[in-house]
């Protein structure tokens, strides 16, 4: 399984043609206390870069973009009652949605963990 990151701080884990999407540890730290997450409906078609989910902290609302194109398989229903999972465990339990990838070649332009760590070190 491989993990990729976007410059907008989404991560995607890829296993076969299934991707699991969330926001990075850095992103949750920037957002602060997360009080609401809106994940996409099952079956929704997303193109890379589409607004896929909304995450709201005490202070502000933010869009989460689809890091790759595909069809939403499921949203993380646990986030409806426990949005704080995104703060506690953003890169595992706090995942946002799973997607069936339509074009895995889109991943090639994304950063791996080492490149992303270097990217946020400069922010």
């Amino acid at each position: 399984m491989s993990r990729y990151f976007t410059e907008d701080h989404e991560w995607i884990d890829v296993d076969g043609d299934i991707g699991t999407v969330g926001i990075s540890e850095y992103a949750q730290g920037q957002l602060g206390d997360i009080v609401f997450v809106d994940v996409p409906e099952d079956g929704k078609e997303l193109s890379k870069g589409d607004e896929a989910a909304v995450v709201e902290s005490v202070k502000a609302a933010s869009d989460v973009y689809a890091p790759a194109s595909g069809t939403v398989l499921e949203g993380n229903t646990a986030l409806a009652d426990t949005p704080g999972l995104v703060n506690e465990d953003p890169e595992a339990e706090g995942w946002f949605f799973k997607i069936t990838l339509s074009d895995p070649s889109e991943l090639e332009s994304m950063m791996d963990e080492v490149a992303y760590a270097a990217f946020i070190a400069k922010l």
């Binding site: 907008d8 989404e10 992103a27 202070k59 502000a60 609302a61 933010s62 869009d63 973009y65």
Partner: peptide, 9 residues
């Protein structure tokens, strides 16, 4: 991910 606004700052 991107902010809709700066939360009133």
């Amino acid at each position: 991910m991107s902010d809709f606004d700066n939360g009133g700052a």
